[in-house]
């Protein structure tokens, strides 16, 4: 009984089915793709974004801050322009492009040279979207990992020991969850005065661990009542051993679900922060790009469009993949 319960919440890929032949990874993947087409699409998107993030230095083509400019063949030196100032030349009816020796290639439409066009500073949007992917993944995965690990640790202790420890932890979680996450995050960012990247990740993770704690605690409360836990206690196993060997392995599955689903949430949260001007100022982020592009979205749509698209597709991918993983790992939803 106890054994069958424990096995039932493990991923199917590691389950043992009545002594039958173990299915290969490919077979599982094909079955998964057939059964959950949207989920498969999400996984593909996630893999694609992860691949981009990992190999971005190889595929970004240009430095994300490189400003492209072109020499003006008709440039006149100050001598040939009669010593007239820039303003005077402009007022004589010349355009700023005619006057400058170099012109920044700003707001260029997509082309062979700039696949997604250029931004207001003449930087390649494609390069910036690619570099932004690295940061988005780093923040999403990092914050999610922090939230899950912290949630696991605190949730197991809270659920296993119960009593005053549980009460204290749960009331703190109540308080944390009652506070609007974005407001709390803005508060942290404001207090820290442009925090370094790791602190942004940690802040996001801190805000997310409460959810993980709730889920882990619920699972622990259920598992702690199982006979095999009682058996372990009767054999004199220490609390640490019981938690590590019998409880933690059984709450991993729901945590994987939380982890996969929340990555998209964190990417979106970071994009929101950057959009509002509270993201890492010295890094290229998608949220910052959307913000920079929005002021002229009707005239020069490329930057806002492509960075917005990157956020949308990535978050959608992580959400779809997360949902599919949940469906696969949850025995109640597995057959659907």
């Amino acid at each position: 009984m106890a054994q069958s319960d424990a096995v039932s919440i493990l991923p199917e890929s590691v389950s043992i089915e009545g002594g039958g032949r173990r299915k290969g990874f490919l077979t599982h993947a094909v079955r998964f793709a057939r059964k959950r087409k949207l989920g498969a699409f999400g996984v593909l998107v996630v893999l694609f974004v992860l691949a981009i993030a990992i190999v971005s230095p190889l595929i970004q083509r240009y430095d994300d801050n490189r400003q492209f400019q072109s020499r003006n063949p008709n440039f006149q030196t100050s001598t040939s322009s009669g010593g007239a100032s820039i303003l005077e030349q402009l007022q004589q009816g010349k355009s700023e492009k005619e006057i400058a020796e170099f012109n920044i290639d700003r707001f260029e439409a997509p082309s062979g040279r700039h696949w997604l066009g250029t931004d207001q500073f003449g930087r390649d949007i494609y390069a910036r979207v690619i570099v932004g992917a690295r940061l988005a993944v780093l923040i999403g995965v990092g914050a999610s990992a922090i939230a899950v690990v912290a949630g696991l640790f605190i949730g197991v202790i809270s659920g296993y020991f119960g009593g005053a420890v549980d009460l204290l932890v749960q009331r703190f979680v109540d308080g944390l969850q009652a506070f609007p996450a974005l407001v709390l995050l803005l508060l942290i960012v404001q207090v820290m005065e442009e925090p370094p990247l790791w602190l942004t990740i940690a802040g996001l993770g801190f805000l997310g661990w409460a959810t993980s704690v709730r889920i882990v605690r619920s699972a622990v409360l259920s598992i702690a009542q199982q006979p095999y836990i009682e058996a372990a206690k009767s054999f004199g196993a220490s609390s640490l051993r019981i938690m590590m060997q019998h409880i933690v392995p059984n709450v991993v599955a729901p945590l994987i679900i939380v982890f996969s689903i929340s990555i998209g949430v964190y990417i979106l949260a970071e994009a929101s922060l950057s959009f509002l001007g509270f993201g890492p100022a010295d890094k290229t982020t998608w949220g910052k790009m959307v913000n920079a592009g929005r002021n002229a979205v009707d005239l020069h749509p490329w930057e806002a469009l492509f960075s917005g698209l990157a956020i949308t597709v990535t978050v959608l991918g992580f959400n779809l993949a997360g949902d599919a993983i949940r469906d696969e790992l949850d025995p109640r939803l597995r057959g659907r």
Binding site: A84, L90, A100, F121
Partner: peptide, 28 residues
Amino acid sequence: QMIQTFHQGLGQKSGAVTWLQEGFAIPP
């Protein structure tokens, strides 16, 4: 470069006295 970057070329270098103060500024 910065005039190009931030102001699309619509700007002019200033010395210790800015070019706005036409009477006193160093000519371009």
